[in-house]
Nucleic acid binder design. Structure first.
Length: 470
DNA sequence: TCTGGGGTCCTAGGACCC
DNA sequence: TCTGGGGTCCTAGGACCC
């Protein structure tokens, strides 16, 4: 353990939203929410003006809109954030060569690496204020909050205490008493599940955690987590600041506006994701042996399927083929809300593996074109159906994947073949309240009306949005 | 009006090998 | 013929972070 508060944790305030306010003066002083703006979007960052209305990170955008309808809702511009982040990180590196970025808006700085020793609380406070000024200058006006202490844990917690635009330096020797009155959830790694378990053992504050024996803690939360928590509770943290952490995995995933059932569509999307993963691997000069496909069902249960190759690859065709096979093994019948493709077991070299090469030649993999826009659109409610399903041209069936429904789409003979019939069974979701359009509501509630063999959908009828379908 | 996308780390069971 | 542990690798899932 070091004796001076020489570890800084720097955290940019409401970073994404602050960049937007910087670039668009009309947004300054106003509530700004950056995040997914689609049906299933969540909030990445809310400006402090928006936080007054209860808008928080990770909240669904729909919820945010209801809390703060007059805010500006913006999709993220990662390229701009990355640029700004680099300018900010450069200021930290000018202060000390040992900087560990945790994300675009956060980093640890170890001052001892710059040769500074015997730093007092006053010294560090002055350094932190200088750094904040430099960051503001380099970023076009962004503010940061800085925490400092004798360890990562203390610096990290301290940076959160005086947000925004604050500096908190914890005097050496006071760490355990600094933590004692706080909730256990201030300790990074203690999330809802761990907090719940600790709570059942009567532990809510760090002081109570300090009293709990290590054996008991391990019984509650497992061995690795338990022993590290035991040490962190008494502020015994000697984790080093590490500047170059190596990448362990690369992945791409997407949540769909409505749940997807159509295997050929999913396969096309999977192929595209495999190519994007490959591009990112190649850019980073990485390759990996394990391909993983991730699916999330309508009820949010998540499954992964993975397969490990004999040697590492960054070849889009190899990744795509393995992903296809894994996707084929996945159950998609209830509709999936998310699909992801990832590569792990990374190596920083590429094996010219005859095995994988020969596989390539056997099955050349062609990217299936995704329809840019649906050419034709059929939609409607039918008796016996309690959810809207919409068919698009080209044989895709897009379903909401909710509720009990058996719908036949027998009309569409498309270039990709007939649109198939499908059925979804999910008793739990049947109870969901629905608001079908008025003209269909009557039919919908009619008892025991048989499902027509060949329903006659309204063609080019009024658009039934997925929001209404829910 | 539920619940993103990019990650990291840990656990647990089974296969396999010595 | 019956029965050891230990170690490593792989797979699946879950908690957590920003």
């Amino acid at each position: 353990m070091r004796h001076d508060p020489s570890i800084l944790h720097v955290d940019l305030d409401a970073f994404f939203a602050a960049v937007e306010q910087r670039d668009k003066p009309s947004l300054r002083g106003k509530p700004v929410v950056v995040g997914g703006i689609g049906l299933r979007g969540v909030v990445s960052t809310a400006s402090y003006e928006a936080r007054k209305y209860g808008v928080r990170s990770a909240m669904s955008t729909a919820e945010a809109r209801s809390r703060c309808p007059h805010a500006a809702y913006l999709g993220p511009r990662f390229e701009v954030y990355r640029e700004t982040s680099q300018a900010v990180m450069a200021q930290m590196r000018a202060l000390s060569p040992l900087v560990e970025p945790l994300s675009l808006d956060e980093a640890f700085v170890d001052l001892t690496a710059s040769g500074l020793t015997g730093l007092t609380v006053e010294d560090v406070t002055a350094i932190a204020n200088d750094l904040k000024a430099a960051i503001k200058e380099a970023s076009g006006g962004l503010t940061a909050s800085v925490g400092a202490g004798t360890s990562k844990l203390i610096a990290k917690i301290a940076s959160d205490l005086d947000k925004p635009d604050g500096v908190v330096v914890v005097p050496p020797g006071t760490e355990a008493e600094f933590l004692a009155p706080m909730q256990v959830t201030v300790i990074p790694g203690v999330g809802p599940a761990t907090a719940q378990r600790l709570s059942m053992a009567g532990v809510r504050t760090v002081a109570e955690l300090q009293q709990l024996g290590e054996d008991e803690l391990i019984r509650q939360v497992g061995s690795a987590h338990g022993s590290s928590l035991h040490r962190l509770a008494v502020a015994a943290d000697d984790r080093a600041v590490v500047s170059d952490r190596e990448t362990k995995s690369v992945s791409v995933e997407d949540t769909f506006e409505t749940d997807l059932l159509d295997r050929s569509l999913l396969t096309a999307i999977s192929d595209r994701m495999a190519h994007r993963v490959s591009e990112r691997l190649q850019k980073a000069q990485l390759s990996g042996r394990t391909v993983t496909v991730k699916t999330r069902m309508h009820d949010f249960t998540t499954h992964t399927r993975s397969s490990t190759l004999a040697g590492p690859t960054d070849d889009p065709r190899v990744i795509a083929r393995v992903a296809r096979r894994l996707l084929d093994d996945s159950d998609v019948s209830g509709g999936i809300r998310l699909l992801g493709v990832g590569v792990s077991s990374l190596a920083d070299w590429i094996q010219d593996d005859l095995f994988t090469e020969s596989e390539n030649e056997e099955v050349p993999l062609e990217l299936v074109e995704l329809p840019e826009r649906p050419r034709e659109r059929l939609s409607g409610y039918y008796p016996g159906q309690d959810v809207v399903h919409t068919t698009y041209g080209e044989g895709w069936v897009w379903g909401s994947g909710r509720g009990v429904v058996t719908v036949r789409f027998e009309t569409a003979e498309t270039p990709a073949g007939p649109v198939r019939s499908f059925a979804i069974e999910d008793p739990e979701l049947r109870r969901l309240e629905r608001r079908p359009p008025d003209d269909v509501a009557a039919k919908d509630s009619a008892p025991e009306t048989p499902v027509p063999e060949t329903p006659e959908p309204e063609i080019s009828g009024p658009e039934i949005s997925a929001a209404q379908a829910d």
